[in-house]
Amino acid sequence: MSAGAPAVLAQGLTKRFKAFTAVDHLDLRIKKGEIIGFIGPNGAGKSTTIRMLCGLLHPSEGRAWVAGFDVDRQPEAVREHIGYMSQKFSLYGDLTVRENLLFFGGIYRVPRRDFNERMRFAVSMAGLEGRENALVRTLAGGWKQRLALGCAILHRPPILFLDEPTSGVEPEARRRFWDLIHELAAEQVTILVSTHYMDEAEYCNRIALIDRGKLIASGTPGELRARRLRGELFEISCTPLGAAVKVLTGTPGVVEAAIFGDKLHVVLGEGGISATDLPGYFGEHGIQAGPAHRVTPSLEDIFVQLVSGRRERRTLP
């Protein structure tokens, strides 16, 4: 891999399952040492993309290079240079922590003189000191995920693909996991990580937003946040939230209304209803509401609008 070359390059990458297109002409360029987050709703095509980049699925169309190797034509060369954590936990549950590490160390041909040190590192990284002889299936989620990461980096791969590594893991363990990811990135490891958690998007250097197999936006969190919403964003406390969204849908002036935690986020455009009118408008419809405050949009607001914007355009004739 030459110095300036991208760690991952995809051009028109497409995957079709029979008539269904799971990944649709995706272009991607990931620089070395970058942490790139794949964000997107369920079934967006994140896992399918990652699997193609790891050489596990054959692309139906398009090409991709990982560490300079063609994923479809040189999958074995690709595999020498990557670490992969699949979405579903896939270490051997009937093997102990130590045996799993021994197995992957052997499969990746970790040099013997480094082996003990790397294994110690993986065990301490996973926080599993003293539990080396525990069967992996007896470990709790967070430990399993960190051990899986430990196995995936035993051979010091320059590129890591992590498919929802933190799903189903408690917040404390998630934070620890992201600390590890940043430590790896500091050592020039390129990391592609997919996630459902919007807050995790902020930890990435760059974000690729994927919806229905298409890359619909990409950039740093700052760049994405700076993209103009089609209007101004207001936050308002009201109950019940679900009914409030329904009431606003189709109301003139309302570009977007979405539940955001325990509050409502409303994007208001030119003309139509104004922010000061909102509480009264809710009152007329039997919804209790406080005053509306202007807020700066978070990444989630941007994603909600991008994704729902596409849906609208699709459903309109």
Partner: peptide, 10 residues
């Protein structure tokens, strides 16, 4: 479900 991990290795 261990196959996916296995075939991602060399």
């Amino acid at each position: 479900g261990t196959m996916e991990q296995l075939i991602s290795t060399p």
